[in-house]
C-alpha cells in the first residue's frame, strides 16, 4: 500500500504553497481573460437567428454544378502541398543533422540548429504565405514556399530526434574498422533513418494538405481561393461543396498515408 504512506512534511508544505501559487496565477489569468474579452452575446445571437436559415441549410445542400471547379482547385491544393512537402523533406535534412547532438558533437551548433527550427515553427503557415505573396506575388508558388518553409521546422525537429535515437554501436563498429565519414553516413546511418524520415515526410504531407486548403484565403492559391469567392458572393451551396470536398479528400489522403506509413516503419 504505497499510496497510504505519509509524504515527507517538507515536500508537502512546498507542494501546498506551489499549488496555491498555481491556483492564484490561473485565477488571475482567467479574471484577466473574462474582464478583457468583449463579446456582445445578445447581438451575436440576434444575428445568428437572422442568418441561420440563410446559411446552414444551404451548407448542407452542396451545389454539385460547381464540382469541376472545386475539384480543379482541390487538385491544385494537393499540388501545392506535395511540392511544398517534398521541398521541406529535403530542406529539413541538413537542419535535422545540424540540430542532432550526436551528429555535430558540438553544443553550440546543436543549439543554433534547434533555435532555427523552433523559430521557423513559431510562424503560422498563413503568415509565411503573406510574406511570400509580397515577394513572389499572389500565386500558388507563394503557397508552395510557405508550406516548404513552414514544414521544414517540424520535419527538422522530428529528423533530429530520429538521428539522436539511432543505434550508435553500428557507427562505432564502422569507425573502429576504419570507415570514413561518408561511408559511415551511407552504410551506418542512412539505413537506420530512411524509413522514419520517409514516414515523417508523408505524415507532414497529410498536415500540409490541410494547411494548403486555407492558403488561398490570403491569395496563395488552392481551394482557399474559392472559399473567399464563395464567402463574398454568399454562395453557401458552393461553400458546402468545398467543405465536403476538403473533408473527403483529406480523409482519403490520411487513410492512404497511414497505410503507407504502417508498411514503412
Amino acid at each position: 500500500m504505497m499510496h497510504n504512506l505519509p509524504p515527507k512534511p517538507k515536500r508537502s508544505t512546498f507542494k501546498t504553497v506551489r499549488n496555491i501559487l498555481i491556483g492564484v496565477i490561473l485565477a488571475g489569468i482567467y479574471i484577466w481573460t473574462f474582464m478583457g474579452i468583449d463579446i456582445d452575446f445578445a447581438k451575436a445571437v440576434d444575428r445568428m437567428t437572422n442568418n441561420y436559415a440563410r446559411i446552414i441549410p444551404k451548407l448542407l445542400d452542396p451545389d454539385w454544378s460547381a464540382l469541376s471547379d472545386v475539384w480543379a482547385a482541390m487538385v491544385e491544393t494537393i499540388y501545392i502541398a506535395f511540392a511544398g512537402s517534398l521541398m521541406a523533406a529535403i530542406l529539413a535534412i541538413p537542419l535535422g543533422f545540424l540540430a542532432a547532438q550526436n551528429m555535430t558533437n558540438n553544443r553550440v551548433l546543436t543549439t543554433i540548429g534547434k533555435w532555427i527550427l523552433s523559430a521557423i515553427r513559431a510562424f503560422p503557415d498563413i503568415i509565411l504565405a503573406i510574406l511570400f505573396i509580397v515577394v513572389v506575388g499572389p500565386k500558388p508558388f507563394a503557397g508552395v514556399l510557405a508550406i516548404a518553409i513552414g514544414s521544414t521546422g517540424m520535419l527538422g525537429k522530428l529528423y533530429s530526434e530520429v538521428l539522436e535515437s539511432i543505434d550508435t554501436n553500428v557507427v562505432e563498429a564502422m569507425e573502429a574498422n576504419g570507415a570514413n565519414k561518408l561511408q559511415i553516413l551511407v552504410h551506418g546511418i542512412l539505413p537506420q533513418i530512411t524509413p522514419e524520415f520517409l514516414s515523417y515526410a508523408i505524415y507532414r504531407f497529410e498536415i500540409d494538405v490541410r494547411a494548403s486548403t486555407i492558403l488561398g484565403i490570403v491569395g496563395a492559391g488552392g481551394i482557399g481561393t474559392l472559399i473567399v469567392f464563395a464567402k463574398m458572393n454568399r454562395n453557401w451551396e458552393e461553400m458546402g461543396l468545398i467543405l465536403l470536398m476538403i473533408i473527403v479528400v483529406v480523409t482519403v489522403i490520411d487513410l492512404i498515408s497511414t497505410q503507407i506509413r504502417k508498411r514503412l516503419v
Binding site: 498563413i126 490541410r210 494547411a211 486548403t213 486555407i214 484565403i217 482557399g224 472559399i227 464567402k231 461553400m239 468545398i242 467543405l243 476538403i246 473533408i247 483529406v250 480523409t251 490520411d254
Partner: peptide
Amino acid sequence: TIPDLVLAV
C-alpha cells in the same frame, strides 16, 4: 479535417 480558418469564415 475542417481547417479552423474555414470554420471561422
